[in-house]
Structure formats: structure tokens, C-alpha cells
């Protein structure tokens, strides 16, 4: 079955995006990438420190690079980082992170939407990282974001899909792909996201913090694939029900 995920002008066969932070050793990254089957990998940007080697030597050729703007506290800082990322010659994708609460590390929806608007105008393909908030998501999409990336739970928490209902709303409402980001600790949680109809999942800490990151990467790859296939297969029934809901095709309309 051909299930191609088209995003940002690319056609992907894997719906797992992986990160490059927090590994025991960056030498693991190529193995993780291979085991996961992922085709998109995120990186951050920092000043070069003495002796710091950077991450690019560990990124397998052929993977799509998704730089993020982590460290940006305002829309303007995010824009600056995005420009730097593009200047590195790795494409025009940018994942916007605007965070100015260093304790909670929750994304600033206003700043994110604002940065999205500015960067779309400069020709970037913008992946905004957001709280699963319908209004922020809409603002980003109206500004031209190629997707929305709602968090499943606080970043790095490995706490799983705590925002399920809200993400479900986004999946229902958004006309762009919903890529679940942050907080997914287990393959089953990634699978659940995909079963719900998410277009992709981004997993970093869940893989990097595993005892065997390579094996966990493979597990996530399979889980995302399984969840996607389950979603496409269509579940026997839905579980949501609202009293008095009016159906688009009433079952009792034939009665007088």
C-alpha cells in the first residue's frame, strides 16, 4: 500500500520524525535513524563552543533536516535563528519553538503564531510547535504553517498522550497535518496518536533516554507504522458520543 506523507514539498514514507538531543553518545544517531526508518530529523542551533563538534557529522545523508528555533524567547529571535538555519544550506524547513518560561518550557502560542507569519513571508516551510490549542493552531495555519505540532505532554517528560482530547480536536479541525510532538515516551503512545489520525509523530527523549536507544527507535518506527495502518484501516466503531447529536445521515429519517 502506498501511503505517502506529503509535507513541505517532500514525499515521505515514514511518519516518525526523530530528534538528535540527549543521546548517551551522538555516535548512536545514525544507528537510531536507520533502525527507526525515519526520514526527518530535527536539530537545534547553538554558538560554537571550543571543541564542540556539532551534530552534522552524525546526520545520515538523505535525511530531511528540520532545524528548530529552541532557545528563542520571542518571535524575533525565532526569526533570526530560522534565517541562520537556512543559511546553513540545509533547506527551508523550520520548526518554530518560542519558549519564554524556562521552568515549564511550554510554547508561547502568540509568539509562535507571530513568528510563523513572519517566516512564511520569507519563504520558509514552517512547522509550529504549539500547545494543542484550537485557536493558536488556527492562527498558525492562517499564517501559512504547513502543519501544526501539538505537544502530547510537557517536553521531555515522557508522560505520554496527556492532551488526547485536545489533539483529537485539532485532528478533526485542522486542514493541515497534525504532527504530535513532545512528551511521547512509549511506542504505544505514538501508536495511539497515529490511530487517532495524527499525520506523524516526533520523538526524541523517548528514544534517546531508552536503555537501548537503537532498539527503541525500531520499536517507535513500527508503532507509528502500525498506528497509521490501523487508522487507514478504519476502526469498527468510534467511541465518542454526544447526546442529541444530529447526524449527517440520519438512521431514523425514514420514519414518519
Amino acid at each position: 500500500m502506498d501511503d505517502i506523507f506529503e509535507i513541505g514539498g517532500e514525499k515521505l514514507s515514514s511518519r516518525l520524525f526523530i530528534g538528535t538531543g540527549k543521546y548517551r553518545s551522538d555516535d548512536l544517531i545514525p544507528k537510531v535513524a536507520e533502525a527507526s526508518g525515519s526520514q526527518v530529523i530535527t536539530v537545534a542551533m547553538r554558538r560554537v563552543d571550543d571543541g564542540g563538534k556539532g551534530i552534522m557529522g552524525h546526520i545520515p545523508a538523505g535525511m530531511h533536516l528540520l532545524p528548530n528555533t529552541s532557545g528563542a524567547r520571542t518571535a524575533e529571535e525565532a526569526v533570526r535563528l530560522a534565517r541562520i538555519a537556512r543559511a546553513a544550506g540545509c533547506g527551508n524547513w523550520i520548526k518554530i519553538e518560542v519558549i519564554n518560561d524556562t521552568l515549564r518550557l511550554l510554547p508561547d502560542g502568540y509568539g509562535t503564531a507571530k513568528a510563523t507569519e513572519m517566516l512564511v513571508k520569507e519563504g520558509f516551510v514552517v512547522f509550529p510547535y504549539i500547545n494543542p490549542d484550537l485557536y493558536v493552531a488556527r492562527a498558525c495555519v492562517e499564517a501559512g504553517a504547513c502543519c501544526v505540532m501539538p505537544l502530547a505532554s510537557p517536553i521531555g517528560s515522557n508522560r505520554g498522550l496527556r492532551t488526547r482530547e485536545m489533539i483529537a480536536v485539532l485532528i478533526d479541525e485542522m486542514k493541515v497535518p497534525v504532527i504530535v510532538d513532545a512528551g511521547i515516551g512509549k511506542p504505544s503512545e505514538a501508536c495511539e496518536c497515529m490511530e487517532m489520525g495524527a499525520s506523524a509523530c516526533l520523538v526524541n527523549t523517548g528514544i534517546a533516554s531508552a536503555r537501548d536507544a537503537v532498539l527503541m527507535a525500531e520499536a517507535f518506527g513500527k508503532a507509528v507504522d502500525a498506528g497509521r495502518k490501523a487508522y487507514l484501516a478504519g476502526f469498527g466503531t468510534g467511541r465518542s458520543f454526544a447526546e442529541g447529536a444530529s447526524a449527517s445521515s440520519p438512521l431514523t429519517g425514514f420514519l414518519r
Binding site: T20, A44, V48, M56, A88, I155, T205
Partner: peptide, 10 residues
């Protein structure tokens, strides 16, 4: 002058 490179991140 700022010299910036890519590092690990999610």
C-alpha cells in the same frame, strides 16, 4: 561575530 552550528535537539 556569532559562529553558530547545529547541535542535538528535538
Amino acid at each position: 561575530i556569532e559562529v553558530i552550528h547545529f547541535v542535538g535537539g528535538g
